[in-house]
Amino acid sequence: MVLFKRNPFGHILLIKKWIIRIFGIISHGRYRRFNDLQIEGSEIIRDLPKTNVLFVSNHQTYFADVAAMFHVFNASLKGRVDSIKNIGYIWNPKLNIYYIAASETMKSGLLPKIFAYTGSISIQRTWRSAGKDVNRQVKMSDISNIGKALDDGWVITFPQGTTTPFKPIRRGTAHIIKTYKPIVIPIVIDGFRRSFDKKGLAIKKRGVLQSMVIKPPLEIDYENDSIKDIITQIEYAIEQHPSFLKVTPIEEYQKYEEELNKKRKFWG
């Protein structure tokens, strides 16, 4: 029955739509009232094909980053320009947006399990588990699931695999790019770490200027660029290459961020 149509992962689209609607309404104020999300480059979203698009971004919280992207992507597709005003865009959301997340994160409670239904591609991390460093083989089923999601729509990934800034890009992201040859869209976010707790569920601070910059597609030679070449290109594109820290020590950079945020405060 059309009413119970499912996506390639077996999720009933009607249920997925309602979960996105409900959480979209609940979360909207986090980017409009309590804090101010400034968006740049959302016109790029409207020109993308319906499938085989990979978004690569730096990472600051477990859930708030993805939720903001769901808002921005859907608002842009409904004609908003660098804005998520008038939440009517969430009533008919794009249902083939997926995001890559650690399976242990998405199984850590009832709320994450509900979030997972909105589009999580849960993977087993090869380098860390339960807060400890590990070294294990990539599960081929994880790779094939990412390919399945790209074939069906858009995929969001945080290639550093952690919310800690300036960590190395994981090689798996470059392998995915060379294997499936998606259009790669870089996104740079800021302010989420200051405004939310690590999970991105609780508001830690109000009046923070959050930003999301959507950049043009990367120019990748899928056949000739090496894994290292692609990793370097991603590092620069999402502004996580070590050279971004060479001018200013990280302690000074963090202090500068706080001072800049105070100057930009809009909340009285």
Rank of each mutant, 00 (worst) to 15 (best):
K107F: 03
V155S: 07
M106C: 13
R46P: 12
N74W: 04
K132D: 06
G131M: 05
G88C: 11
T162V: 01
Q137W: 09
V56G: 03
W127N: 14
R80S: 13
S129D: 10
I114M: 10
A67K: 11
L54W: 03
A102D: 14
R80C: 11
L150K: 07
K94Y: 08
F70G: 15
F63A: 13
R170S: 02
K113H: 11
I123S: 14
T51N: 10
L110C: 08
D142S: 05
E104S: 07
P49M: 00
I97P: 07
K132G: 01
T157I: 08
K78Y: 14
Q137L: 10
V66H: 04
I90L: 12
P112L: 15
Q160S: 09
Y98H: 09
W91R: 11
Y98A: 06
F73V: 13
P159Y: 03
G153F: 02
V66C: 07
F115L: 15
G172R: 07
G161N: 06
L48S: 06
T105Q: 13
I169L: 04
S129H: 00
K167T: 10
G147T: 10
S108A: 14
T162W: 02
D82R: 03
V56P: 05
R80K: 13
K85F: 14
S76D: 12
P49C: 02
D152G: 00
G153Q: 04
S108L: 05
P165N: 02
L95V: 04
V72H: 07
L77R: 05
F166D: 06
V81G: 09
M106L: 15
S57V: 00
K85N: 14
G153A: 02
G109E: 11
W127T: 14
K85D: 15
G147R: 15
I169W: 00
V72S: 00
T105I: 15
N92Q: 14
A68F: 03
R170L: 12
S129W: 03
K78D: 14
D65G: 00
T164W: 04
G161L: 06
N86Q: 11
A116E: 09
N58T: 01
G88Y: 10
G153E: 03
S83Y: 05
T164L: 01
T51V: 02
D133E: 11
A116M: 10
K94R: 15
S141D: 02
T51M: 01
A64F: 02
E104G: 00
V56S: 08
T157E: 02
P49S: 08
K50D: 11
G153W: 06
K107Y: 06
F73M: 14
F73L: 12
F166S: 05
N52F: 06
R46W: 09
G147A: 10
S129M: 11
D152E: 12
A116S: 13
I100S: 09
E104R: 01
Y89P: 05
R125K: 11
F166E: 01
I87A: 09
I146F: 10
I169A: 04
F73Q: 13
N52V: 02
K148Y: 08
F166K: 02
L110Q: 10
